[in-house]
Amino acid sequence: MGFWRSALETLAKRKGVRAVIDNEIMLEDMEYVFGKNGSAQRFVDKTIVITGCGGFLGYYLTNCFVYLKSKGFPYRKLILLDTFLFGRPRWLEELERHHEDVEVHRFDIARDELEQAASALSADFVIHMASIASPSYYRKYPVETIEANVLGLRRLLEFYKHRPLDGLLFFSSSEVYGDPAPEAIPTPETYLGNVASIGPRACYDESKRMGETLCYVYHQTYGMPIRIVRPFNNYGPGMALTDKRVPADFAQAVLRGEDVVIYSDGRPTRTFCYIADAVDGYLRVLTHDEFGCFNIGMDRPEISVRRLADIYREAAAELWGYGGEVRFIVSEEKDYLTDNPNRRCPDITKARMALGFRPEISVERGVRRYLRYLRKELLPV
């Protein structure tokens, strides 16, 4: 497996993937999203600001807008902001090189002066997802995590409160629920949460909760067109192999031909939502006409982490004859399991009824698509 190990290391050094959509899985995903989502016309001749563009969701949403332009629904300008704490992805350089209507800026939304960048930040739609989302990383950078979700959001809201906007979307998290009581599974938006305010995950969980409060207050006070999403366990193309969440860890293991390692007893359960379904939901929330907070995720089936590992093993065995096993070890990161929720499953009734959101891609199918996407990205290496 020396070739694949070398290829994986090279792919990781790229800190991202290509922005020119030439991967058949991505093209199929884009066709799927916009085949069921009727929002394309809403973005024509609009300026869209995306904070946190360098991450998993930033990559995917950016490619969605580039795809729309290629299909005759051109935005006016795409403005992409990020601190690039973990390095600037190469795909952003390629994006700027191929698209004159795209601007990429190294910008700390919590610290840099917004007024000096007023002309660059003139927008019709704002998508704020500038935050560290992986527990291993936000435990390492807790202050930066709080700043992005609270200070950065507050500064954005102040900047845009008297400026015309079609919509501002705040990416909250399913982590605002903490570890729900058994009777709150599936978890509706009305559940108030069981969250630790002190602990290694609190920097993320509580800052997302405070972010939602800010959104509510600014909507109520200034009538801002704010919408909130609570994502539930997304995975798929664009998720870096160095992400340190289980979908990426398992993908890296099977691609290397190594055993799949689980840093728990494998019994915590989750539902996993393939990114194409999730992005369909995010765009529906962004273009929704009323203030609201929506769970966006897959509501079935709720499976154990161990079962997810087996799904990866089965997919890799089918695709290229993988023969690794599952191993259980204790993480060297002492807080790895502290305050980790035992169950995570959304009630998406509200999104289904108000938005027409209906995720369709099973975890078995989604994992295969993710692995096929990664193999295609690795072949040129």
Rank of each mutant, 00 (worst) to 15 (best):
C64E: 06
G323N: 07
E258H: 00
H99W: 06
P359C: 06
M353L: 12
W320Y: 14
I132N: 11
A40L: 09
G292E: 14
L241R: 07
M129I: 10
G324R: 08
K376R: 15
A133C: 13
P164K: 14
R163M: 01
I48R: 09
G35Y: 11
D280I: 01
P341Y: 07
R5K: 14
K140A: 10
H105F: 13
P237W: 13
V261F: 00
R97Q: 14
Y59T: 12
A118L: 06
R372Y: 01
E24F: 10
D259N: 14
D101Y: 06
V44I: 13
I132V: 12
E318T: 03
L283T: 08
G366F: 10
Y141C: 00
R343P: 09
R18E: 15
V150N: 05
P89R: 13
D29S: 13
A248G: 10
A196R: 08
N340H: 13
R88F: 04
P380N: 03
Y322Q: 03
V195Y: 01
I146Y: 12
I361V: 13
F250E: 10
L156A: 09
R369S: 02
S197W: 09
F65L: 09
F34P: 04
D22S: 15
T213W: 10
W4R: 13
P225M: 09
G323H: 08
S264C: 01
D205V: 03
S172E: 06
W320Q: 02
L374C: 10
T287Y: 03
R307V: 07
D205Q: 14
N342L: 13
G38M: 07
L57I: 09
H288V: 01
W91E: 05
I262C: 01
Y235G: 08
T271A: 04
E100F: 01
L92G: 06
W4H: 04
E158Q: 12
Q252T: 03
S264W: 02
V176E: 07
P186D: 13
R352T: 12
D243L: 05
G2Y: 07
S173K: 05
T287L: 02
D101R: 04
A117Y: 14
Y216K: 14
G152Q: 05
Y235F: 15
E333G: 00
V363H: 04
S197C: 10
R5E: 14
I361P: 07
M30L: 14
I127N: 06
Y235K: 08
V217H: 07
R139H: 01
L286Q: 03
R267I: 00
P188H: 04
A248L: 05
L68Q: 04
I50E: 00
Q252G: 14
I146R: 06
R14C: 10
K71Q: 15
V260D: 00
M1F: 07
C273S: 08
V260I: 15
F125L: 06
R270E: 15
D265I: 00
E28P: 10
E360D: 02
R344F: 07
V285L: 03
P200R: 11
I226A: 03
L151Q: 06
T145R: 11
R209A: 05
F232V: 02
R230A: 08
